[in-house]
């Protein structure tokens, strides 16, 4: 863990990604201080000019209902990051457990788990996610569940590959020789060996999860009471903000999505370089 942080400090791209992430995290945490939650209500903009250009009253203008775009952007950071991180946690935990089983077990169990993994890997994401989103209902948490449940297969593959190499090491053979059961070997020698990899992998799943959330929200499956950045883009699209050239409505959430995704990717790549010394040389 300290090695990860030390390595990250030396990696300029990773460090700048980390700073950007820090700013967005601050934004999400401080949302109640920056904007009133009432601003998200459908009737908040009654009596105001809809799709008004940025002014001193509304720094990023208003949407089609006359609500502050800036307030939505600030609160949207919460929803987008919450969904992105929760979905990643689900994907990483499920993926790691599946990967450990697939890598460490032998025989039919390994084959079965691997077959399930392959199946999830090849099922097209969007149709499956849409079906799940419809069935499970709309809330940021179910959205995270949907995304997490459909994106663990890659990490499972990654963890399995690492477990396969670790299990052949001499110290694993020694542990088995000294009478250790599978639980001991996994806990003592295998899991510590895959954790750095899992951390690096997780940072690379977050941007995918945020994009997935934006996609689903943009397609109209988001929670209207907890607007994320993707939901804002959906609103901008359906209210005609793009044809009316109300750039203050669609540009900020779009740029925020890009910034967070790029930042996470930079941090993830940096962690990957630190964890896997082979990438550093190439």
């Amino acid at each position: 863990m300290t090695r990860l942080l030390r390595g990250l400090r030396r990696d300029r791209a990773g460090l700048s990604g980390l700073i950007v992430l820090g700013l967005f995290a601050l934004l999400a945490v401080a949302a109640p201080l920056l904007a009133s939650r009432n601003e998200l209500r459908a009737d908040a903009g009654r009596g105001r000019v809809s799709l008004a250009a940025p002014s001193s009253d509304f720094l990023l203008g208003t949407d089609e209902l006359g609500r502050s775009v800036a307030a939505q952007l600030v609160w949207g950071a919460r929803v987008s990051l919450y969904i992105g991180i929760l979905a990643t946690l689900i994907a990483v935990v499920v993926g790691s457990v599946i990967g450990l089983i697939a890598g460490y077990s032998r025989g039919w169990l390994s084959s079965l788990v691997l077959a399930v993994d392959d199946f999830v890997l090849v099922v097209p994401f969007l149709p499956l996610a849409i079906v799940l989103a419809v069935v499970l209902g709309r809330s940021p948490t179910t959205m995270a569940l949907v995304i997490g449940a459909t994106s663990w297969a890659g990490s499972a593959r990654l963890v399995r590959a690492q477990v396969l190499t670790l299990r052949e090491r001499g110290y694993v053979e020694r542990a088995i020789t000294l009478g250790a059961g599978p639980a001991h070997v996994l806990r003592r020698h295998i899991v510590p060996g895959v954790v750095p990899l899992i951390i690096a992998n997780a940072t690379l799943i977050v941007p995918g999860a945020i994009l997935a959330e934006s996609t689903l929200s943009f397609l109209g499956f988001g929670d209207p009471f907890a607007p994320s950045w993707g939901k804002m883009l959906d609103g901008a699209q359906s209210s005609g903000a793009i044809t009316l050239n109300a750039w203050w409505y669609y540009l900020p959430p779009g740029l925020c999505i890009i910034a967070v995704v790029v930042a996470f990717t930079l941090v993830g790549r940096a962690l990957e370089r630190i964890v896997d010394p082979r990438l550093e040389r190439s």
């Binding site: 001499g170 110290y171 053979e173 020694r174 020789t177 000294l178 020698h189």
Partner: peptide, 14 residues
């Protein structure tokens, strides 16, 4: 118990 050959590989480096 066993004393393995090649202690290098039998000890966990971390």
């Amino acid at each position: 118990s066993v004393v393995f050959q090649g202690a290098q590989h039998v000890l966990n480096p971390v």
